[in-house]
Design a protein around this nucleic acid. Structure first.
Lengths: 233, 233
DNA sequence: GCAAAAGTGTTAACTTTACACCCATGT
DNA sequence: ACATGGGTGTAAAGTTAACACTTTTGC
């Protein structure tokens, strides 16, 4: 590793935050990637990320990155893991705290709010190219995490529209976990859990029988959880 | 927050590692704490920790802290969470990457290998005092993590001696999870899992019928896991 | 021989799995 | 009227939970 004075000063003991922003669309999980405009790995795809500002908490930094790209606030955002191998950044020691966000991909249009937003795009997780730095590692860690968590926490709802059909929900599980699920058993189970409420509305503009729309009653879920209930798909 | 030039230089963009070292002894989970000899929070109990060296990976740093206190290498060591609130350190911005270690408390004597080791002591997790910095937060996060993980990964074995009785194992689960477990059902389940092997030895020096000793066959477990087996207590 | 913990089986309750047809709607 | 996905029940298999007595050993 080559370190001249400038780099030393610029990069020594530096922290960044990278955010694995995930959405579910057309039956597939997708990750929001940018094309790097800066010098290292220029032109290559990478996770959206930034240095941490001196006056901002880690969570706020991750939320800021999400907001600058998508305009979304108050999304599901969690710390994932911290990557700090000595050689992970070619210009010096940069430790990065990785986060992941689960967002409703339908709820917004990608509107540029920062210089890098022009080059952002959704990439199917099954088709992720070679990324800058150790970002493939980070994405893989995020996928492993959410695949595990999907089974015992109701995080799938953060990826669906507020109102969704039971089939959409089932397809989300089948697609992310890569398993087939029996429709009748799935419906019975999820309905008896008692945290889905029918909106009283139906799908529009489908060329077949319209499905009921449901939404996830988060308050109800939290009540149940406090009473010792464990979500388990 | 007061920052003179020296502090600025010393603490700006600084990262540290703290290690929640856990052991199981006399039927209780314990955490290894030190008494601070340095200026902030002097005399108060804290987690063992250190600044990260420029040439060491995060994992190695955590392993080093463990080694300096206990002489142990190759223990169960995992990254826990990164704490970086702007005000968590009174002298400036210090982001800390927290790890936890699970060790066999019987396997060693606390031998001082570093300046802070003289003051290290095991504290029952039910009796943790007010700690320096945000270290209570960190310990609580570690406890929550291992209580969750204990149910679906075989991490309990890392806290027991290599050879243990089924009752010791049961008591570990009962104590850490704070639940009663039916002895017969527990034994049936864990034996059918087929990764415990009887050593052919028995307890020594007990004033009652001696129990068989078992050990955890890690290779066998990993085989089973690859075949799709899920540990679940 | 008695105190103390080790070790062991059966049944009922519950949960999970497998499986196929009629229904509503748009074209 | 037909194509498309929506919606529903039952029985068998498997899993979990509840429960009490005999065995071994040291003192």
């Amino acid at each position: 590793m080559q370190k001249d004075g400038r780099m030393q000063q610029q990069y020594h003991n530096t922290f960044s935050i990278d955010n694995v922003i995930l959405g579910f669309d057309s039956g597939e999980l997708k990750v929001l990637l940018i094309e790097r405009a800066e010098e290292t790995f220029i032109g290559q795809m990478a996770l959206p990320g930034n240095l941490v500002r001196e006056d901002e908490n880690l969570d706020s930094g991750a939320a800021r990155i999400l907001f600058e790209l998508t305009g979304l606030e108050e999304s599901h955002l969690e710390q994932l893991y911290t990557f700090g191998d000595v050689n992970r950044h070619p210009l010096g020691r940069v430790i990065t705290v990785a986060y992941y966000s689960l967002i409703r991909i339908q709820d917004f249009n990608l509107i540029p709010r920062s210089s890098f937003a022009r080059k952002a795009s959704w990439v199917k997780v099954s088709e992720i190219p070679s990324l800058a730095f150790d970002h493939n590692l980070i994405v893989n860690k995020a996928l492993k995490r959410i695949r595990g968590k999907l089974r015992y926490k109701p995080i799938g709802f953060d990826l669906l529209p507020e109102k969704f059909t039971l089939r959409q929900l089932q397809e989300l599980y089948e697609s992310i976990l890569q398993i087939p699920i029996d429709t009748r058993n799935f419906r019975k189970k999820i309905i008896t859990y008692d945290f889905l409420v029918a909106c009283g509305e139906k799908q529009q503009q489908v060329s077949h029988r319209a499905a009921k729309l449901y939404h996830f009653d988060k308050k109800r879920y939290q009540e149940l959880e406090q009473q010792g209930f464990n979500f388990d798909l």
